[in-house]
Design a protein around this nucleic acid. Structure first.
Length: 640
RNA sequence: GCCAACGUAGCUCAGCUGGUAGAGCAGUUCAUUCGUAAUGAACAGGUCACCGGUUCAAGUCCGGUCGUUGGCUCCA
């Protein structure tokens, strides 16, 4: 048979040759590190025979597919260790994930597992690694598979088998452990040299709140110790970037139990950053024809009944407040208020698009277990806007807001992934006509294609009133967060009976675009803190320069320079403390202030400052005029 | 909300198998007037998250509450 290699070479092998034999024929070294083989796009075990012409790719841990195989096998290895240590343990699912694997297990009655138990399990895993047990694949009939797990008493695997009738069932066995598994696996446990178990968590069986909570054990594994150590170091480094730590160190925000969980208080430094961001976006919005509005923090419940948000999202709203027999809701979103503004006077097609923007603070009841620093809170401010336009204007308007969103992300050099969030086929989750949905999804996709967006489609991720384009980033420890969003809405115009007079002198429905480039100021800033490791660019830094006189004799000159810079709108501080210059510099660096201006007798003589850039050190003497020029140049959004 | 872990001074942390709380930094005061990452000394600072229980004795053991963290579920 003819085997085509990734580089295009075609080689002849006898029928029934295994992946491992092909690997060996290429090189012994490759055979030693390969974990699987992709045959015509499908992953195969190396031990499995190939019986027809095929294109193949041998994968190692260095390939993404290889990592998945490696970690999936590691999950089985951990399962085997658990079965030895906790006889009677039952297994749910144990897949590979981004940086490792997990296995959901139901431990025997009375057994509780905590992180302290993980080292012992690791030790057992290492013992199994040393045995170099082969992973043996076996095709089995559905009935035999059911019989096996009935005998074993594992109702979770039986439930999984229920969903696999009429499909090929495979078992994998390594050592004494057999699992229902599609594969693929590494040849033997000996390859999984450096396993590391990381954490324990509860997880509902099949993600269903009404079902049993299983114990989920997270782990990872590497073929070399150096790789494991590198990974662990990276994790430790990432923790230092955590916005909750830096937010405290740099006095950006505060959360106190007395105010309430998820209700961040913006400290002066955080407020400075936030105001700069707002000013940046305001300016861009003015250029693009937005009008700014302000709406109250509560609204009559009827408003949200009209919009459909209540009771649709009742579970995640604070309970209504009753005032003089009327019920009010703490504002969970700004849109209905803006619709009232649109509807407050007759609109002509000549007025459209109407673009209403607001930094609007909203309140949502998030479950206590979900609260997370600034990323997930109960009170937050959206950089919200609603664009009311005609059908003809829609696609251009989508493009405009996507362009604005991209400007925002590029200004901060943020790497985002773009998701087109469409509906799935669960009719209960969505409102409005299916034709309108199809139309808006089509329009979003066309706009995205015409803009050459690099996107993926998320089915079931749409809002109840329409599809979205969502921009997603990762935080320091790899969790994904949605930031910006662009949403097309045909439902609210109907619900609020919004109209405009067309050129034909009849009433028409506008289309609404909801959009928020930052998403929430809180979450966006949490990401920025981590993205910059707290080293904010000059234009955003709460304090932009520390002015450091060396001794008392230099204080007047230092204060004069401070006043000159402040007059230019630069945020400076003069360190008049009776401290040595070394300490003043050290503290300025620790607080991550972009510049320090050291002032001594030499500088005064030359009408200069000694410029020190954060993280880079002494830049030498620079005249006061040059400093002003530099700072003004750096003090604009996106400047570097 | 659910599962698990954690909660000691403003911050970072120590406190062995229960015997009555300790360090560094920050703060205050004094001395020092200093040239590119922390000058020295003294002082002050804690109902050991909160409530209850066991015990002669609880920061330490047990239970509950609150909060935080890692996940799950949810996210307009």
């Amino acid at each position: 048979m003819q085997i085509t290699l990734p580089n295009g070479d075609v080689r002849a092998y006898p029928e029934g040759t295994t992946g491992l034999e092909i690997a060996k024929s290429i090189s012994e070294g490759l055979a030693r590190v390969s974990v699987g083989i992709i045959v015509n796009g499908a992953p195969y075990d190396l031990s499995r025979q190939i019986n027809a012409d095929a294109s193949i790719k041998i994968v190692t841990f260095d390939d993404d597919e290889g990592k998945q195989i490696f970690w999936h096998s590691s999950a089985h290895l951990m399962a085997e260790a658990l079965e030895v240590m906790y006889p009677g343990v039952k297994f749910g699912i144990g897949p590979p994930i981004d940086n490792g694997f997990y296995y959901d297990v139901d431990l025997p009655e009375g057994v509780k597992l905590s992180v302290e138990d993980l080292p012992a399990i690791e030790t057992k895993m290492l013992e199994l690694v040393k045995r170099c047990q082969e992973y043996v694949r076996r095709e089995i009939s559905w009935d035999d598979a059911v019989a096996y797990f009935k005998e074993k008493g594992d109702e979770y695997k039986l439930e999984l088998l229920d969903g696999l009738k009429d499909q090929e069932i495979t078992f994998y066995t390594q050592g004494g452990f057999t699992d229902l598994c599609r594969g693929t696996h590494v040849p033997n446990t000996g390859m999984l040299k450096c396993p590391k178990l990381l954490s324990v968590a509860g997880a509902y069986w099949r993600g269903d709140v009404s079902r049993k909570v299983l114990t989920r054990i997270y782990g990872t594994a590497f073929p070399k110790k150096a790789l494991l150590e590198e990974y662990l170091t990276q994790r430790a480094e990432a923790e230092k970037r955590d916005h909750r730590k830096l937010g405290k160190d740099l006095e950006i925000y505060l959360i106190t139990p007395l105010v309430g969980g998820g209700l961040p208080i913006w400290l002066p430094n955080g407020t400075a950053i936030r105001r700069r961001l707002e000013a940046f976006l305001r300016e861009e919005q003015v250029k693009r024809g937005y009008q700014e509005v302000i709406t109250p923090h509560i609204g009559n419940l009827e408003l949200y009944k009209t919009s459909g948000h209540y009771p649709y999202y009742a579970d995640s709203q604070f309970d209504p407040i009753t005032v003089e027999d009327e019920q009010y809701l703490l504002k969970p979103m700004n849109c209905p208020h803006h619709h009232q503004i649109y509807d407050s006077k007759p609109r002509s097609y000549r007025d459209l698009p109407v673009r209403l923007a607001e930094f609007g603070t909203v309140y949502r009841y998030e479950q206590s277990g979900e609260l997370n620093g600034l990323s997930r809170v109960r009170g937050f401010t959206q950089d919200d806007a609603h664009i009311y336009c005609t059908q003809d204007q829609l696609k251009d308007e989508i493009k405009n807001v996507v362009e604005l969103t991209q400007l925002v992300f590029s200004t901060f050099d943020l790497e985002v992934s773009t998701r087109l969030s469409f509906r799935d086929d669960n009719p209960n989750k969505y409102g409005g006509d299916i034709e309108l949905w199809d139309r808006s999804q089509r329009e979003i996709k066309e706009a995205a294609d015409e803009m050459n967006l690099d996107y993926f489609i998320g089915l079931g991720e749409a809002a109840f009133y329409g599809p979205k384009i969502d921009f997603i980033v990762r935080d320091a420890i790899g969790r994904k967060w949605q930031l910006g969003t662009v949403q097309v809405d045909y439902v609210m115009p109907e619900r609020f009976n919004l109209e405009y007079a067309g050129a034909d002198n009849t009433k028409h429905r506008p289309v609404i675009i909801h959009r928020a480039p930052f998403g929430s100021m809180e979450r966006f800033i949490s990401i920025l803190i981590e993205h910059y490791t707290g080293n904010f660019p000059f234009w955003l830094a709460p304090l932009q320069a520390n002015i450091l006189p060396i001794a008392e004799a230099h204080q007047t000159f230092a204060s004069d320079i401070a006043a000159e810079l402040e007059a230019l709108g630069i945020r400076v501080h003069v360190d008049l403390r009776n401290e040595k210059i070394n300490r003043k510099i050290a503290e300025s660096e620790q607080k991550k202030v972009p510049f320090a201006l050291v002032i001594g007798s030499k500088e005064i003589e030359m009408d200069s400052v000694a410029l020190r850039k954060h993280g880079e050190g002494d830049k030498g003497m620079v005249t006061v005029a040059e400093v002003k020029e530099l700072f003004l140049h750096l003090n604009v959004p996106g400047a570097k």
